[in-house]
């Protein structure tokens, strides 16, 4: 189930270089959301909607939170929206993360602007989630206090060592696995990172769910635009990020 409407921005913050954090009041949409789903936002002046993951869900207040980075003209225009203005959103779309019982141990791995959807899933597991996040440099670091506020353990990595530990999220992940194997790994980030995380998960026989991106038109599975190569029972075919995903079992996609 999804819906569409104009929803008011009730909070806006710039949380890092070119990175914005919006909270929207959207009772009907919020009631339907699961972690890992996304909204499809219409930005005036642009023909296609912009898909953005849902980063925070507050069912009590009927609000969701999205965090995005300016990548081009559409996200730049989106960053100019202010509190009190309304956004045209279609959502929640796609299939979210598969959740285990909340007392299971999980690790979330977020790379750069792939970190926001990890916050929504880590919230569900509270202290049983370890959130590994990686960024190029300290000016891009986001959401670390938010993970801590929901009792997640956090590990922060930067490529240049200017914040947290120097190195890649995959190094931190491999180290965590040596101590204790989680029941599930969740990941979102650049494709190279997702490949490496999937590989580690496979080698350790841990289930792994990854959230993917692809250029979209409809966002609801009608146009077949957002293809991703999938594999099931030895057969390869094109699935669709907006309908079969954006969250996939890492064993079912060919990256």
């Amino acid at each position: 189930m999804y819906t569409q409407g104009m929803y008011e921005i009730i909070k806006k913050e710039q949380i890092a270089e070119d990175t914005f954090d919006l909270t929207l009041s959207c009772r009907d949409l919020c009631d339907l959301v699961n972690p890992g789903q996304f909204v499809h936002i219409s930005v005036p002046g642009f023909f296609l909607r912009r898909p953005i993951s849902i980063c925070g869900i507050d069912k009590d207040s009927g609000t969701i939170r999205i965090v995005f980075q300016i990548k081009g003209k559409g996200t730049d225009a989106l960053s100019k929206f202010e509190v009190g203005e309304q956004l045209d959103m279609l959502g929640p779309l796609g299939i979210g993360f598969k959740l285990l019982e909340s007392d299971k141990k999980v690790i979330t791995v977020g790379g750069g602007i792939g970190t926001p959807p990890m916050l929504a899933v880590a919230k569900y597991y509270g202290k049983n989630a370890t959130a590994i996040s990686g960024f190029r440099t300290k000016d891009l670091v986001i959401l670390q206090d938010d993970f801590k506020a929901q009792n997640n353990k956090t590990i922060l990595c930067t490529d240049d060592g200017t914040a947290g530990e120097k190195g890649f999220v995959t190094d931190a992940l491999a180290r965590c696995l040596k101590e204790e194997k989680p029941d599930m790994i969740y990941a979102c980030g650049p494709v190279v990172m997702l490949k490496a995380v999937s590989e580690i998960a496979r080698n350790n026989e841990i289930s792994c769910q990854i959230s993917l991106e692809e250029r979209m038109a409809c966002g609801v599975g009608a146009c077949l635009g957002c293809a991703v190569k999938m594999t099931r029972g030895g057969r390869e075919f094109y699935g669709h990020v907006c309908k079969n995903g954006p969250v996939f079992d890492s064993k079912e996609v060919v990256l």
């Binding site: 296609l48 559409g74 692809e214 250029r215 635009g225 957002c226 293809a227 190569k229 075919f237 094109y238």
Partner: peptide
């Protein structure tokens, strides 16, 4: 099967 992605470009 259709074509490999990306399949969509805005104009």
């Amino acid at each position: 099967d259709g074509n490999p992605p990306p399949r969509i470009a805005e104009t």
